[in-house]
Design a protein around this nucleic acid. Structure first.
Lengths: 183, 183
DNA sequence: ATAAAATTGCCGAATGGACAGTGAATAATG
DNA sequence: CATTATTCACTGTCCATTCGGCAATTTTAT
């Protein structure tokens, strides 16, 4: 019971999504369950299902939120720089917090349960990729950077070895340099 | 009931693992269930659980098998080439078949259900990474290649946009070139 | 060598827990 | 009052795991 015990929030969706993220964070994406989310959001199960009529919808909502944040990040890169989208992707990773990992974890959970949930993500990335590649003549070079960024994501996500924070920093520098050398 | 109805195989484990892979391949990693595996392996549920006392053990077995195959692939790179391990990782991706994707999918499923299942994989990759980095002076450069390779893996795995087969080929060429330029 | 005993590999029904989803009743809100 | 948000009590399903039994195989004892 929180302070707002009796208060009816106008929209519990954000609280629900937050709860889902918290669970993914603490216990792993596989533990995202309607009951668990309800408990975490201090809501009944029915309450959750009112906002997200199905679990699939809940997962879709998580992805949605993530894509929205992705947009914000991209938008925070100065308009006039070359390879803007590509830089955005890189800086997004640099700034990423722990929560984001767990959200990515949710993506994987989603992918495992129903690959189609990733469709919006695919669409988004397709657009990004087009922009990135049309920003340069050296498409393979740009693609390598894109792939390395993806690699960074998943490496962090799955807790795979990364050679240490020091190397990580130098790698990011290297990627920045590679982006600058694209034309 | 097959021809060998009455015959007692000495070890059904390989058949069980094969069945699990087949299911992951056809229906996705999330569909790996003891019942399903039992049916696919033409075995009873109890039989499966006799060989792998828990589902967790079954998943661990899958990862084990995968790591073994990974070893074979690395071993197939000529001894005398520079950056041997790194080349091995790259060529492994180039040669990878559909089955491997689905197995990777199983990895993700495993990660979602219990992150610790990935420990052996982490150990293996830690070793590989050490070898790769000690093979060169340009550690950030090598690391970028490693990351790009990981990126390729996951991009294929999750069906994320890759810019087309043509670009993919050129990227692989580029990565080979980058490996050659490492010293 | 051979009967008895133990072990191995497996079967399949039963158990129980976890979970998604439903629907009628209820409270809050405007 | 009417609509909206939420609760509560269930339902049905899926699924991992348990367990007692059984046939084939191997070991032990005689």
């Amino acid at each position: 019971m929180t302070i707002q015990s009796k208060m009816q929030a106008k929209n519990a969706s954000p609280r629900i999504l937050g709860a889902a993220r918290a669970i993914a964070h603490r216990e792993g994406a596989g533990k995202i369950t309607i009951d668990a989310v309800a408990r975490e959001a201090d809501l009944s199960k029915g309450g959750v299902l009112y906002n997200f009529p199905t679990k699939r919808a809940l997962l879709a909502g998580l992805l949605d939120e993530m894509l929205a944040e992705h947009h914000e990040r991209l938008a925070s890169v100065p308009e006039d720089r070359r390879s803007r989208t590509l830089r955005g992707h890189l800086e997004a990773i640099v700034q990423a917090r722990a929560v984001d990992d767990d959200l990515s974890m949710a993506i994987l959970a989603a992918a495992a349960s129903d690959p189609r949930l990733l469709d919006p993500l695919r669409a988004e990335l397709t657009g990004d990729l087009e922009r990135i590649l049309s920003d340069t003549q050296d498409t393979p070079g740009a693609m390598v950077v894109v792939l390395a960024i993806q690699g960074l994501r998943f490496q962090k996500l799955l807790g795979l070895p990364d050679g240490g924070a020091d190397l990580r920093g130098r790698v990011i520098e290297q990627l920045r340099a590679m982006i600058n050398e694209l034309e």
